[in-house]
């Protein structure tokens, strides 16, 4: 952990700076993708019924006739003041619309993460054992292969097995209409569908790092000298893994965010992911913008943590 002061200081300053710059880049990308491409909000609201003059009026009213960077700047500054605009569909503030969906998504993502983390840990232990027994073997093939399977296939396979054949759980995960905690059985399918691909991704990335750490000369030499395996792991291997593990965590968070959209929609679970997909279908741009930016921010936050930890490569 000993770190020279200037390196530590510059890391503490540079990493947040880099995160802020990346966040700005992401916001530009999100804004550009949703606002500047053909087919703007006026088309969506007018829905083909409005005349050209009405559309022009609508554009002027919403400021769509101004240059792109100006619209981005006013959008971003409003966001910074906590104003994300109103849903084009319902007219309610976007923040409220999304806020209403967050608890359900938090339950789902939290449960999925609680399953993903031990699975990744297990996969890494197996990868480590393999690396010690077969030093020339790259390993990680199974996990890497599994990351190729589309998540919709995982959803379909799990639904076919658990709901279709075994009839253990309902095929759709409808939340109780009055709110309140959901029945655990409806979480089984979405949680498994989210967690299994995320865990495979995590193992594919981290397992290789573990195997590399175990093949470093000071680790193999410590084993030759007879240093107990537990001490080798504690002193030489685990400290190396901190930064990569946080990067993998960022990947898992991203996977849960994107997977959530798919899984919630497929299983009819009314969370923020389902909101994202239905808003995309309805071209409810402000909601999509905030959800997209929010997911990217979550990933960036974890990456920032990883940047703050000294890299031992």
């Amino acid at each position: 952990m000993r770190l020279s002061a200037p390196a530590g200081l510059s890391r503490a300053v540079l990493a947040p700076l880099r995160a802020v710059v990346l966040l700005a880049v992401v916001s530009v990308a999100v804004f550009a993708a949703t606002e500047l491409l053909p087919g703007d909000a006026a088309d969506a609201v007018g829905a083909g019924r409005a005349s050209a003059a009405q559309l022009a009026g609508l554009r002027a009213e919403r400021g769509l006739d101004r240059p792109g960077w100006e619209r981005w700047a006013s959008w971003a500054s409003a966001l910074l003041h906590g104003d994300a605009g109103r849903s084009l569909l319902t007219g309610r503030p976007v923040v409220d619309v999304i806020g209403g969906r967050l608890p359900a998504t938090a339950v789902l993502a939290g449960s999925a993460f609680a399953l993903t983390a031990p699975l990744v840990l297990l996969g890494c232990v197996l990868a480590g054992r393999r690396a010690l027994r077969r030093p020339g073997d790259a390993g990680g093939g199974l996990a890497t292969a599994l990351t190729a399977v589309p998540q919709v296939v995982v959803a379909a396979a799990l639904a076919a097995l658990l709901s279709g054949v075994l009839r253990w759980v309902p095929p759709v995960s409808l939340l109780p209409p009055g709110g309140g905690p959901p029945d655990p059985s409806i979480l089984v399918l979405p949680v498994l569908t989210l967690a299994l691909p995320s865990a495979a991704f995590g193992v594919a990335l981290l397992g290789g790092v573990v195997a590399d750490a175990l093949r470093r000369p000071y680790v193999t030499d410590a084993l030759v000298r007879g240093v107990p395996a537990g001490r080798v792991l504690r002193r030489h291997v685990l400290p190396v893994l901190a930064a990569p593990a946080l990067r993998v965590l960022a990947v898992v968070v991203g996977g849960l965010a994107a997977g959530g959209a798919l899984v919630e929609t497929v299983f009819g679970y009314a969370g923020a992911g389902e909101l994202l997909v239905s808003s995309v279908a309805a071209r409810d741009t402000p909601v999509v913008q905030l959800l997209g930016l929010g997911s990217a921010t979550a990933v960036l936050a974890v990456l920032l943590l990883a940047d703050l930890v000294p890299v031992r490569s």
């Binding site: 990346l22 991203g254 997977g259 959209a261 741009t285 997911s295 974890v302």
Partner: peptide, 17 residues
């Protein structure tokens, strides 16, 4: 960041327009 954000998120955002 590119590695961490799954491709589905930008695809959904792009699908708006």
């Amino acid at each position: 960041l590119l590695l961490a954000v799954p491709v589905l998120l930008p695809a959904l955002v792009l699908a708006v327009s």
